[in-house]
């Protein structure tokens, strides 16, 4: 009985979280340019419109390019940092880890303003690569956390064994550590990718007037009134996030990635 109540509570909350998304999906199916729920004259018309309208395709291209490059750069910073801190406990390792965790922990508007004055000072304000670097540094926390978690799970005796068998540093890295942390690198990249795609304030303050991304485009469009196309974009972004996290959940161990120490076996 109590088990049933617990289940009901969990399901009820999850449904509440999904409610606005259901309404938005409904709204995106409206035939005429109106936001009604349930939709009137349901059609997929606005989905077609999105992919023909350069006003939306250009920001979409920007968003994808920024997310793809920024997360790659993010991983390139996080991986050596995680490797360094993994085996060391000194002040350097702690300071670096702290620096890696800080950007994402602080309210994002702080980093946004910091990047804005930085790019205004050194040049690059309004450029797409400035946004890419800003996102990479801001999101470095995510791959850092996942990769560190992966490294923590490596059995040291494996490394010992490889060394005893005569493997050099590079061979150990390539044949033992690499394959073991690869899934964590991939999920770190995926997390950073989705977050970058959805990030607004940094993209806005670094290059908002010249490089429009999808979140910036949506916000600008909201000022000129609500159209079903906003619902369409929202639905696509929700599906993309669900797909990415669903894949991680399907092929990886999501509970463990989120910090549960009880493994999949239980």
């Amino acid at each position: 009985m109590t088990q049933l109540l617990k289940r009901a509570y969990v399901v009820a909350i999850l449904l509440m979280l999904l409610a606005p998304l259901v309404v938005v999906t409904g709204v995106s199916l409206n035939g005429p340019q109106t936001l009604r729920f349930p939709p009137v004259e349901p059609s997929l018309r606005w989905y077609g419109t999105l992919f023909q309208d350069s006003a939306w395709l250009v920001p979409l291209g920007h968003s994808l390019l920024i997310a793809a490059c920024a997360s790659a750069l993010s991983v390139s910073i996080a991986l050596p940092l995680a490797l360094f801190a993994w085996e060391r406990n000194g002040i350097a390792a702690r300071v670096l880890t702290g620096l890696g965790l800080a950007p994402f922990t602080l309210p994002p508007v702080i980093s946004a303003l910091g990047f804005m004055v930085f790019w205004m000072t050194v040049g690059g304000y309004g450029q797409i690569w400035a946004t890419i670097i800003a996102h990479a540094v801001f999101l470095v926390t995510l791959p850092l956390v996942t990769i560190s978690l992966g490294l923590k799970g490596i059995d040291r005796s494996l490394l010992e064994a490889a060394r005893v068998m005569g493997a050099g540093r590079w061979t150990v890295m390539r044949t033992v550590i690499g394959p073991l942390v690869l899934p964590f690198i991939v999920s770190g990249y995926a997390f950073a990718f989705v977050l970058s795609l959805n990030e607004y304030i940094i993209a806005y303050m670094v290059a908002g007037f010249t490089v429009e991304t999808i979140p910036i485009k949506i916000f600008n469009a909201l000022r000129y009134g609500y159209t079903p196309i906003l619902g369409v974009v929202s639905v696509l972004f929700v599906l993309l996030a669900a797909l990415v996290f669903g894949l991680i959940g399907r092929f990886g161990d999501l509970p463990r990635l989120m910090g549960s120490e009880r493994g999949r076996s239980e």
Partner: peptide
């Protein structure tokens, strides 16, 4: 499954959540 839902909501742009 629950974590996928939570992460998807968490990663959503504030502008999409605000609109929704």
């Amino acid at each position: 499954v629950a974590l996928v839902v939570l992460l998807s909501v968490l990663s959503l742009s504030e502008v999409i959540i605000g609109f929704s």
